[in-house]
Amino acid sequence: MSKSIFLLRHGQTVFNAQQRLQGHCNSSLTDLGQQQATTIGLSLKNKLANKRQWTIYSSPLGRAMQTAAIVAEQIGIDSDKIVQDIRLQEFCLGDWEKAYIPDLKAQQPRLCEQRDWYLMAPNAESYYGVKDRIEDFLADVSVPENIIIISHGLTGAVFRGVYAGMTYSEVFSQDLPQDAYFLLANDKISRIQCDIYSEMTLAV
């Protein structure tokens, strides 16, 4: 694959902080989530030799678009140029959307023993459904060579898995950070950690 892709998850949301599942529903970024988005935006700004060569793609879900707008502002890219792509949105979590994770654990004490427990939700979108839309995105010749993608925790893990040819278990053994992002280039994945205070200091 010849594309260079920076892939990140949206910042922390109100539902994340409340330990509630989101899926296709939405909640706004917390103050921390906005800081995380700003920090990653500053980090990206320092890594891009020419911002004009890069296009921002985002899941159309509100939390991703809110993150994308903050990232675009830090880099100096017009937020009107953000491309919304439904293929990048999060798994639908069916009947568990808006549910509190502690409540689900209380009802099913062994639920979280498996890393893919989210997909056990009644009427949840299947792994293969999401895998298909990521494969379609990566094969899409209309997508530019240099892109910054704002997606979600689970979909981002599947994206990295498809890119690197991971097995199902490898996909769900990955972490889902909101304080780091990934460079996918030359068939390799590099994790870039972001520290809020060091990035802010560099920006001053």
Rank of each mutant, 00 (worst) to 15 (best):
Q84S: 03
L111N: 01
Q66F: 04
M65K: 03
A64S: 09
I86F: 02
R115N: 07
S28V: 15
A72K: 09
K98A: 10
C112P: 07
Q74E: 05
I77R: 05
G33M: 12
I86N: 01
G62V: 08
R52A: 10
R87I: 11
W54C: 01
R63V: 02
F91N: 02
A64K: 12
C92L: 10
G41K: 06
Q36G: 09
A64P: 10
D31L: 09
T30E: 12
S79W: 05
Y57C: 00
H24V: 06
A68Y: 04
S43I: 03
S43G: 10
Q66N: 12
E73M: 14
Q34D: 00
N26P: 09
L29C: 06
V83R: 06
T38L: 14
A64I: 02
D103K: 09
R115K: 14
S58W: 04
R52D: 08
K81S: 10
R87F: 10
D31K: 15
N26W: 00
I40W: 09
W117R: 01
P60C: 05
E97C: 04
G76S: 06
G76F: 06
S43E: 10
T55D: 08
Q35G: 14
Q66K: 09
N46P: 12
L42S: 15
I75S: 04
D80A: 03
C112F: 13
F91S: 03
Q89P: 07
Q74W: 05
Y57S: 00
C25G: 15
S28Y: 03
F91A: 06
N50D: 15
D103L: 12
I82K: 03
A72S: 14
S58T: 07
K98L: 15
I40D: 15
D85W: 13
E90P: 14
Y57A: 00
W54G: 04
D116F: 09
L93E: 12
T38F: 08
D95T: 03
L61I: 07
S58K: 00
L61Y: 02
S79D: 02
R63T: 01
L104H: 04
R110Y: 14
N26G: 13
D95V: 01
L32P: 07
T67A: 05
V71C: 03
L61P: 06
T39F: 03
F91Q: 01
L88T: 04
W54M: 01
I75M: 07
I56P: 10
L32S: 12
L44Y: 08
Y57M: 01
L61S: 13
G41V: 14
Y118W: 11
S59L: 01
Q84W: 12
D116W: 12
E97P: 01
T55I: 06
K47F: 12
Q66T: 13
